[in-house]
Design a protein around this nucleic acid. Sequence first.
RNA 1: CGGGGCGUAGCGCAGCCUGGUAGCGCGCCUGGUUCGGGACCAGGAUGUCGGAGGUUCAAAUCCUCUCGCCCCGACCA
Length: 559
Amino acid sequence: MRHSKLLIPTLKEDPSEAEAISHKLMIRAGLVRQLAAGLYIYLPLGLIVLDKINRILREEMNAIGAQEISMPVLHPAEVWQQTGRWNEIGEEMFRLKDRSGRDMCLGMTHEEIVTWLAAGEIRSYRDLPQTWYQIQTKLRDEARPKSGVLRTREFLMKDSYSFDADEKGLDKSYQLHLEAYKKIFERSGLKFYVVESDPGMMGGAVAHEFMAPSPAGEDEIVLCECGYAANIELAKSIPTKPEFSDWKLEEVATPDSRTIDEVSAFLKLDKRLFIKSLIVVSQKGPVMALVRGDQEVHEKKLRRLIGEFRPAHKEEVKEFTGIEAGFIGPIKCKLPIIADESLKEGNYVTGANKEGYHIKGIVPKRDFTADFADIHAAKAGDGCPKCRKTLASEKVIEIGNIFKLGTKYSEPLKAYYLDEHGKEKPIIMGSYGIGPARIAAAAIEQNHDENGIIWPLSIAPFQVQILPLNMKNESVKKTADEIYQGLLKEKIEALIDDREASPGIKFKDADLIGIPYRIVVGEKGLKEGLVEIKERRTGKVEKIKTEAAVEHIHKKLLQ
RNA sequence: CGGGGCGUAGCGCAGCCUGGUAGCGCGCCUGGUUCGGGACCAGGAUGUCGGAGGUUCAAAUCCUCUCGCCCCGACCA
C-alpha cells in the first residue's frame, strides 16, 4: 500500500486521556480513535491488524474442526429468561424494546443463542460432537471502560461452543481448544500463561484463562517454577511461618494503636504474629473474619463461603461487638467466626475487646472456636501449594478463557439428544473465548520501545516498509518504487512511504508504526548502489545491493 | 455506584487563585529554500473557553446545576 493513500494519522505527543502504553501507542500510531468511553473506531492500520489476528483465529479453529457461523447481536429476551440470566445479569446488559414492545437485549455473549440453535438442530448422538464458532461483536455496559481497547463496551470476540454427548467428549473438546489457543497466542507472538481460573457464574467446575503478562493488565496471577499458576482470585498458597513464642495469655496496653501496622510497630513484633479481625455483614448477619496480620482477606474466597457481604461500617462494629474498631478480637466474640487456615497453629496477639488493649498469647482453637478455611489472598513470597517453593506474582491481561459448562445451558433450553439406547440426554457443553483486540493490545504492551510499536511479524499491519527519503530525487523515487513492485510480486505485504515529507518525519513515523522490516532508499546509499534493510526490533542494519533487496527480504520472511 | 482529576484552536497545554482585548508550542494553508532522525524563512487561517442558569457595569475566571472524559476502588457470566 502507498502511505499517501492510507489514513495513518500519527501523533507526535501522547494523548492526554491515555494511561496504558498500548493505549497511547494505538492512538499515536493511528490505529484507533475513541468515539466515547469504551467505544473505538478502528482506522485502516488497526483494522488490518485485527484482520490478521482473526485470520490466525480462523485457521486454528478450523484446524480443530470448529465450524464458523454468525449469530445476531440483537437477541430476544425469552432465551435469556429461560436460562435465568435475564434476571441474574444486572446493568451490564444493554436492554431495549422493539417497536411492538417486545423485550430485547444486545448480546454480551452467545451461550443462550448457540444453545437455542443446538436444541433445534442436534437430535442424535450421531450429530455429536460439534464445535461452532463466530467472530462477532459483543456489547456490555461496562461499569468502567478503561485502558484503551483492553476494556470496552463494544468489542470483537471469537467465541466457540462445543457440544458433546458426555464428559469424556467434553474433555476432548476442551483439550483441543486448550492446544489451539496455545498455538494462536504463540503465533501472535505473545508471552502468556495458562492458569486455573474461577468458573464464576459460567457454571462448570473447570476453567482456564490465558494470561499475557503486562503492567496494564487488570488481573493478577501467582506462579511457581514447578508449573503451578493460578488467578489470584482462587490461588492457594502456604504462608511463610513466623517463629512463635510460648506466650502466656496477657493483656498489653496499646494506646492509640489500632491497625496491625501500628500495633506491630508499637510492640516491635512480626506482623505474622498478629490476628487481624474484620467484621463483615453478610445476608445472614454479621460475621467475624480472621486472617494473619500480614495477610489480606480475599473477598471472592470469603464470598464463596458466606455469600454476598460488605465490610461493616465503624458504627456497626461497635454495635455488633460493643467495642471500637481497632481493638476487637475473637475472644468471647459472639459472632460466627471464619478463620484462615494458616491460623490453625501458633500463638498470637490480637485485639482484647477492650479499648486501648491487645491480648498476647492467643492460641486458636484453645482460646476461641472458629470455622477454618482458606480465605487469605495469595501473594508473592508465599509458598506454592504444590511444591512449597516461593510463589511469584504478575499483572496480566486476560486474552482468552475456556470453560467447561456441562449442562448449565442445555438443560433450561432443552438441548437434548437421543443416545444409542434411545434415551434422552442433555448435551454437554463448553465455551471458549478470545478477544482479538486484547491480543493486539497485549502484543504492543509486550513489544515496544521508547520510539513506538514493535509488531510481531505475524500480526504486523505490513511486513516491510519502504522509505524513499527524498521523493524529489528521481532515482530514489524510482528505485523505491521498483523495490515496492518487486515485493508485491512476491506477495510480500509492503507499505511505501511515498509522502513528500522530510526524512526525519518518515523515520519517526516508521518507528512508531512498528513494521518489522524497513528498507531505506536514500541518495547516499544509491551512489554506491546500496539500500539499507533495518530490523525494527533489533535496530540491526544491513547494506544490500539495490537489486538484491527483494530477494533478501524474501529470505528473511521465510526464516 | 463511591473517591479523585480534567474539559480553553485539529493535538498538547498556559491563562482561572486576584473578573476587564483569549494566548503558547506543534499541526494546518500559501510562497520559497531544504532533503539520512519530527528542517528553515516569510505570510496566513482557526475558538459558541463542554453546556445551562446565576452574581456583576463586565465572567474562560466567582456561584449553582448539568454533561462528557480519565484515574483509583467496587463490579466484570
